[in-house]
């Protein structure tokens, strides 16, 4: 990593979910925290989200979901990312997700999921800290 590297984030909307106010709010907030944010737009398949993440070489994939289908879709996004050698990305997300589902998804590789009412500041700070931690570890290896 060099001094010039920016944090690149993909904000994705998987599945049949037409509510993107939250995704857009978070995307704008991350932009205002100096990150480069790629927004997928609505109705993406897990396949497409993983493919975009790979082409854009992002550091972070954040999914937004309010449809209740997170237990079906989130693991599939993770699997598609792994298939493309993108297992290293910081995986996160948010929306209407019950606590027990959050815990189950955490065990499957979602570093952290955020619920309604989370200040965007918290999300941005957490992402920055996590990415810097990972880049630091990567630097030590090489």
């Amino acid at each position: 990593m060099t001094a010039n590297s920016k944090i690149r984030v993909l904000v994705g909307k998987p599945g049949l979910d037409g509510h993107d106010r939250g995704a857009k709010t978070v995307a704008s907030a991350l932009r205002d925290h100096g990150m480069e944010v790629i927004y997928t737009g609505l109705h993406q398949t897990p396949d497409a989200i993983a493919e975009i993440a790979a082409q854009e070489d992002v550091d972070v994939v954040g999914l937004s979901i309010l449809s209740g289908a997170h237990m079906a879709l989130f693991p599939r996004v993770k699997a598609e990312l792994d298939k493309r050698g993108m297992g290293h990305v910081l995986l996160t997300g948010g929306g209407i997700i019950p606590l027990e589902d959050m815990e189950a998804l955490h065990r499957q590789g979602y570093a952290r999921l955020f619920g309604p009412g989370t200040p965007t500041e918290d999300i941005a700070k957490w992402i920055r800290a996590e990415v810097e931690k990972r880049r630091g570890a990567e630097g030590e290896q090489s």
């Binding site: 932009r31 205002d32 925290h33 100096g34 990150m35 944010v37 790629i38 927004y39 396949d47 975009i52």
Partner: peptide
């Protein structure tokens, strides 16, 4: 802020899974 919102590929949505296309 040094940040950016990159939204061009939203208009190129139907090219995403085409193996003959790469969008950056």
């Amino acid at each position: 802020t040094g940040g950016a919102l990159l939204g061009d590929r939203i208009r190129m949505d139907d090219r995403t899974l085409d193996p003959g296309v790469y969008i950056r």
